[in-house]
Design a protein around this nucleic acid. Structure first.
Lengths: 198, 198
DNA sequence: CACAAAAGATTAACTCGGTCAATCTTTTGC
DNA sequence: GCAAAAGATTGACCGAGTTAATCTTTTGTG
């Protein structure tokens, strides 16, 4: 068995990428609701059932990028040697510095277009919230699963959602990420200060 | 114009009730996903498009009861003469005392069956979360719409969701509402104490 | 009390997201 | 090199939700 990666694996990856890229390109051009999954399957030279073997829902054609970050908060807390809230705060602040798109503080046109698509399409925001609920559950578990853990998890996820959304809105209104950075840090610190333990 | 309530209004109300009751009865008996909207329309002697004129989605046939409480938090805050967090806390505690189903502290079999249906059906919990997001937006607006308001709104909604869910789980596990009451109050006070300002 | 206008219900046909059973292709064990 | 298993592909199908045209019922008015 000398095959490093089977031919099959490579083809699968190719199909996956073709679907995702075709989908996002079409969605960006015509809008999420104006493109049918059949259109996407055709554009990727694949049948509709095949598409759904790669992506469980139409929304996931867009959101798989974000979904890859699933349970990140829980992992951060579990891996950290410091108190949970401190770990989450530092992780978010590092994200701001790195201009991680998930913090909303990124003004690359492609990133902006992508998030505009997500935030202005109800079906996508809905599914995004499902992912965040998953995140919250995992985080609550990582925090012990008791009342305090559940509350902290819910509030930590909320905080990150509100902060990211605000950053994205300011950037969308035209401000450069670099110009927003300091305010974003200030807001993040204010927000995390409001969490128990600190 | 002496007509107190037109005949038309009454018939509409009748159809509305017939649809809702037929739907919930069928869902409770066979499960949400095992009943088609066509089944419900037939049971209510109505056509499918007519059903959708009364309820925008299949889920709303179940959730309209909860949806009636929309923006309740925002209204509570707006109507109160006390600080927002205090108003929300008092409102929730009053709900516990009154065994308001929305607090999870209600052990009537019908109520339990209804919430079991809601919480164990993904399509319903998803739509429920959409309502809570609406609630959160309205509350944030009522709180001023700035960062602090948005954060407080998100956390207040989270707190109520976590508390209600915990109560429901304990009741579902077999405890009587009366026996849960004191713990529910304690947990609620702990949770609201964690919110800014208090 | 009749009747015109309008509001609402009905029907049939349609679109679209998602699933399934059967078929075909590729990989793998011998 | 080949048979069997694993996996990919497809056409046919189902259910939610919509639309346009038609028909019924209610209501305000002469």
């Amino acid at each position: 068995m000398l095959t490093v990666t089977g031919l099959r694996e490579r083809k699968k990856q190719q199909t996956y990428d073709a679907l995702s890229e075709a989908a996002i390109a079409l969605f960006l051009k015509r809008g999420f609701d104006e493109v049918s999954v059949t259109d996407i399957a055709e554009a990727a030279n694949v049948s509709k059932p095949t598409l759904f073997k790669y992506f469980p829902t139409k929304q996931d054609l867009v959101l798989h990028r974000i979904a890859d970050h699933r349970h990140e908060s829980a992992r951060v807390v579990a891996a950290a040697g410091v108190p949970p809230v401190q770990a989450l705060r530092e992780h978010f602040l590092a994200g701001l510095t790195a201009r991680d798109p998930i913090t909303g503080l990124n003004d690359h046109p492609q990133v902006l277009a992508y998030y505009k698509l997500v935030f202005t399409t109800p079906a996508l925001t809905t599914r995004l919230h499902q992912f965040m609920d998953d995140d919250e559950r995992a985080l609550a578990e990582a925090l012990g699963g008791d009342l305090k853990g559940e509350l902290l998890a819910a509030q930590a996820v909320s905080v990150q959602r509100v902060l990211s959304r605000r950053n994205w809105e300011v950037i969308t209104a035209g401000q450069r990420a670099a110009d927003r950075y300091l305010d974003a840090v200030t807001e993040a610190e204010t927000a995390f200060d409001g969490l128990p333990i600190g």
